[in-house]
Nucleic acid binder design. Structure first.
Lengths: 345, 345
DNA sequence: CTGAAAGCGCTTACAG
DNA sequence: CTGAAAGCGCTTACAG
């Protein structure tokens, strides 16, 4: 027997000699279907390669079975320069969605767009995952609007007390402390910090504070604001920040960069001036992107568990969508010691 | 006035004093709506932040307005090790989809999965974009099935005469030739090739053939199969291949790696044996991933236009979905000369 | 345990 | 140019 086009639940019903609603029940695993009937129906569905129509099901049930991942780019949208830090997380998120039976829509957004209107409505997605570095204060208003609209969402970023919505993030203070203690233990005392350490970038600010504490606990005097230069998470920005730092003419024997991209850009700038790494300047980064391992010297850096982060983001969002309780989580970091910090021969 | 839940087209109709179908027409831009009526409707829709329900629209129109991107991973699924080559393409694809008004579903697949059944049906997506290196012959059967099912799809990969479906790919022969001519012009005569140069990996095979031709046209004797070692596109694999090459004990003065990941792994293996790059061995890769620039020495490599590729993939697929004619395309490559090939001081 | 009925929110011939 | 009607393929109370 042949069916024109994709088979429907009604086709299955005819073949199984039952009504169409019974097919629907059997397929959704309702407990009130005769075991034998269910088996017959499942067999036929399998054989016809039947798949429930997502539109019809979604329309009737008023939900999409789909989550949306919005990836924000920093200011320069020069064609697809996404922070490589997010890639493993993306992989983890797609897998976690699959495990939860959710489809995943992906969209790259500019910070300026009014994406908060685009999703939420229209039943494209039941909830949003927000990824991306960027100015937190500029972001906050939109997050608040999402909460008002009742759109379920989770974001990757700093976990703070009274922020709108749920966040999964790493322990940025703890990570900064690991970097600071490491550099302090190696005898570095004049540590420069490259990154925008303000409440616009709470993650960077936490890393700054953590490093400061770590240096002190190792017997030093902590971070000096005179050795801090703003930078966004990009190689160019790191290069420019290190250059600006050198021009200040103040002595420093180490650099803690708020991200690996900044660190790698800074290394280029320092090396171009003839400074040796780690002999003259020790470097520690944050993120452990693939390039960290390949840089010369290889970069000591703070690792965030991006795989686990992706899983937690999806789990938390699925809970929100199902109106179950969910909470923000802060993940532990670990320090990977490589040659750039001077601890290895 | 307040409306419980999301507004529907019926809500708009009441407010505009017209029937619901007229709202639908106005919103879809039908030419048979009074200009003034349309404006009124659009204004109200805007004000209520109304968005057409995707499920309802999709159900009625029998299509999804959604494309699916399937990214295949090579054998080792050790958590999200995607070839970084695909990331800019991913960015380009998401943007192109947005321009075409398509949503993009993303899914990471194992080569073994029977993804060809999962999509195509169920109206999740109107068409598929297939990305990923891997054994082409293993793949081919599934592609043929997609064609039989009538599922529109495009893939990134070798453009070959009688393959199933549409492909967008780069001119691998041309790229290999650029590498070969470059090495040949620099006087390298004993060039090793790292990569699986068989019909299982037609892209690598083309790069092999192109390099062979390029070396000959530069006055050499071409590639020697005795200096070819299989490798998949991964750093480990490149390391292992270079190690195997060294163990053969045959002399060689250059390596053309079928991908940058292979090249970078090979560089580590060669340097670990005390060989100097480029003095003892010149290296050329393929892809221009971010790590190529950061490697020491920086890697000379063949660049594929991933941005354009993403656009072409989406354009071609949208055409297929709309039953318009579309064709496979082969993109030009360019050679980026860096220090690893010995052409720079 | 199963069926008949209603309805999710749209789109599109069909009349007028 | 506009409205009344039908229907896309499901899911879920409601009877039985």
């Amino acid at each position: 027997m042949t069916i024109r086009g994709k088979p429907t639940s009604l086709d299955i019903a005819h073949l199984a000699g039952v009504s169409q609603p019974t097919v629907s029940r059997a397929l959704r695993g309702s407990p009130m279907v005769n075991e034998e009937t269910r088996k017959r129906i499942l067999a036929i569905a399998e054989q016809l390669n039947y798949k429930v129509d997502k539109n019809a099901s979604g329309l009737r049930r008023q939900h999409a079975g789909t989550l949306a991942l919005l990836l924000f780019e920093d200011p320069t949208p020069d064609e697809s320069h996404i922070n490589p830090f997010f890639f493993p997380m993306l992989g983890s998120i797609t897998r976690a969605c699959a495990r939860h039976g959710q489809d995943l829509l992906i969209s790259f957004q500019q910070f300026s767009d009014d994406w908060h209107a685009e999703y939420g409505d229209s039943h494209k997605a039941d909830g949003l995952i927000l990824l991306g570095y960027g100015d937190y204060l500029a972001h906050q208003g939109k997050l608040t609007k999402l909460v008002e609209q009742g759109t379920p969402f989770v974001r990757w970023g700093a976990v703070m007390p009274d922020q709108p919505g749920l966040s999964i993030g790493c322990d940025n203070v703890g990570g900064g402390r690991q970097a600071g203690e490491h550099l302090g233990a190696l005898g570095r005392r004049q540590v420069a910090f490259l990154g925008d350490a303000s409440n616009h970038y709470p993650e960077f600010l936490d890393r700054f504070a953590g490093c400061d504490a770590g240096l002190r606990s190792a017997g030093g005097t902590g971070l000096d604001r005179a050795l801090q230069v703003d930078a966004e998470s990009a190689e160019d920005s790191g290069f420019a920040a290190a250059t600006a730092l050198l021009e200040r003419g103040l002595p420093f024997d180490a650099v803690f960069a708020a991200s690996d991209l900044i660190a790698i850009g800074a290394m280029h700038a320092l090396q171009a001036r003839g400074l040796r790494i780690p002999e003259d300047v020790a470097i520690v980064g944050f993120d452990d992107i693939p390039a960290a391992r390949i840089a010369t010297p290889a970069l000591t850096t703070v690792v965030q568990d991006t795989i686990r982060a992706g899983e937690l983001l999806v789990e938390a969002l699925v809970r929100l969508v199902n109106c179950e309780p969910a909470e923000s989580t802060r993940l532990e970091t670990t320090l990977v010691v490589r040659r750039s910090s001077g601890a290895l021969p």
